[in-house]
Amino acid sequence: SNQIFTLLTALTALTVQTSVTVVSESAVALAARGACVIVACRDPDKAEEAVREIKVRSRSLNVLHMELDLANLRSVRGFCKNFLQREKRLDILINNAAMPGVLDWTDDSFSMCFGVNHLGHFLLTNLLLPRLKECAPSRVVTLTCSTYKYQKLNFQDLNYNLLPFFTYCRSKLANVYFSQEVARVTEGKGVTSYAVHPGLVQSGWTCHYSVLFRMLMQVIMWMFFVPCEVGAQTVIYCAVSQEAAKHNGGYFVDCRPAALRPFARDAAVAKKLWEVSERLVKEA
């Protein structure tokens, strides 16, 4: 389709790596389809570099950058106010919740993983939901990871920040619950929601770690991980496929619905996380 529509892709708070992210590959594909692509990212220099590359590869000039720091809820609120004043359409929101497990804290004193991967996107999506409803049918695509299955949420310690891998797993499980609850709260309003595991991809997430770890992971990724172009296919599928629209609230792997572990399908937990998240972002 050559229909013009608006795609907002919200990247992680720290960096956007050109050529090596699933979402940048998705942005290229969707810009080539006629989307107005808005890249939301904290680092303006790297974002502009990404915008230039997306323009060249998609042969579209309808790509721009807006500043957004998902590790700062004041920035999220300011971004949404600015976006809603400037843009009259929002058809697809891609939440690239990809902050790796790091022992750090957001500006609002949440653990970096939970704060960026879940709360930042939670607030962003909620503030943009009215526009998504106005532009229905519209979609919210949230990137998660199959590692969600290795942890469960502890509502007594959502800010768990001791073991980086487990912290990351919990934030990915929160993404799964969040995506399901978006589908529930917008049911009948023309907004559909999907959680996507793009696969283990050769991305730039190791930039947050030591040189030795980066070198080791580069070898492992080269041997076992898939290129970002491959990982992007499921994101693109959920963004535009009519078939995907039949599975609102679904979890997708390899361009098809996939089964979740039973505990990750608990509607009561998803609703509780939503309510707790509302309180946390309001208090921050």
Rank of each mutant, 00 (worst) to 15 (best):
G249P: 05
F225M: 06
K246M: 10
V219S: 03
V230C: 02
G249M: 03
W222F: 12
T206W: 04
G250K: 03
S210H: 05
F225Y: 13
E275V: 09
R261G: 06
G250E: 07
G249N: 04
P257S: 10
P257G: 10
L212W: 12
G231P: 03
A239F: 02
M221L: 15
F213Y: 13
D266I: 04
C255Y: 00
Q233S: 11
C207L: 14
A267F: 01
L212P: 02
A244S: 08
L273F: 09
S210W: 06
S210F: 04
V269L: 03
Q218L: 12
N248E: 07
S210M: 05
F213N: 01
A244C: 08
S241P: 09
M221T: 11
F263W: 09
K271G: 11
D266W: 01
A232L: 01
D254P: 01
C238Y: 00
Q233K: 14
A244T: 08
S241Y: 09
L260N: 02
W222C: 04
W222L: 07
D266K: 04
V226M: 12
K272A: 08
C207M: 14
V219R: 01
Q233R: 14
R265N: 11
F213C: 01
S210N: 06
H247Q: 09
R261F: 13
A258N: 10
V269G: 05
C238G: 00
R261W: 12
V230A: 05
Q218F: 13
L273M: 09
C228Y: 01
R256K: 00
A264H: 08
C228F: 02
F263H: 12
G250S: 06
F252Q: 10
K271R: 11
N248P: 04
M223P: 00
A232G: 02
A239S: 14
F213E: 00
G250L: 05
W222Y: 10
V269E: 10
A258D: 14
C238M: 00
P257M: 09
G250V: 05
C207S: 14
